[in-house]
Amino acid sequence: MVTINDVPWVTFALATGMVVVYFVSPAITPLNYTLLAPWMHAGFGHIWQNLLVFVVLGAWVEHRVGWLPFLFFVVMIPYLALHLPVVLEYGELSRGASGLTMALTGYVFPVLLVDLAKRIESFECDAKEVAVGLGILLVLVYLSVDSWMTVQRFVGLEPRPGGVSVSSHMTGLVLGVLWFGWRSVRQGLVDA
């Protein structure tokens, strides 16, 4: 039986909000920027990429940690990812949920590593277990490549693409890893 806790309503509500803000396309004013910057996007490709990662990772994380901690995380993190680079003077004003998607990446990556290590420890050679392990490994490869590109761009090893807020991406990635660390201290490594 599906309960209210099984439905990732926070993920879908915020994804819907992003789409609404995209189609309404409010003028960028200081007040709108302060309130709506994480939910504004610069074109269809920008919102599509953010929504795809946000819905997939967000639904999984929301189911894992519960809707209330997830709601706090997904509301606080995108504002921090966009505004910390400006306040601390290592980035410029930007918009979009890329900092949030990178924060989810920063959280999900160590969670999946711990889960994969647990599965390897108690490995049973059946088709389902092998398929799940390979699936986790594929997701880890994708997330590690995405994270590594962000780090390379942030430190200057790779060129920064025009129109991409690398500082927001990096801030989100670090905040996601810190959230994992905080949860692992409070709830243990396996339940983080």
Rank of each mutant, 00 (worst) to 15 (best):
183 R>Y: 03
66 G>V: 05
59 A>I: 00
118 K>R: 13
163 G>H: 09
177 V>Q: 10
65 V>H: 00
82 L>N: 02
120 I>H: 09
157 L>R: 12
6 D>S: 13
140 L>H: 06
33 Y>S: 03
134 L>V: 15
59 A>N: 10
96 G>C: 01
23 F>R: 06
171 T>Y: 02
52 L>P: 01
27 A>H: 03
171 T>M: 08
92 E>H: 06
4 I>S: 06
87 V>Y: 04
65 V>W: 00
155 V>D: 12
146 D>V: 06
132 V>L: 10
78 P>W: 09
117 A>S: 12
161 P>C: 08
87 V>L: 08
180 F>V: 09
60 W>C: 10
112 L>R: 05
80 L>T: 01
149 M>Y: 10
110 P>G: 08
190 V>P: 00
144 S>Q: 08
80 L>P: 00
134 L>Y: 05
81 A>H: 00
154 F>Q: 07
36 L>V: 02
71 L>Y: 00
93 L>R: 11
31 L>V: 15
23 F>H: 13
158 E>D: 10
27 A>L: 11
9 W>K: 07
64 R>E: 11
158 E>G: 03
35 L>V: 14
48 W>D: 08
46 H>Y: 13
111 V>T: 11
175 L>G: 06
28 I>C: 01
72 F>K: 04
99 G>Q: 01
126 D>K: 15
24 V>S: 02
16 T>Q: 07
191 D>T: 11
107 Y>Q: 04
2 V>W: 04
56 V>F: 15
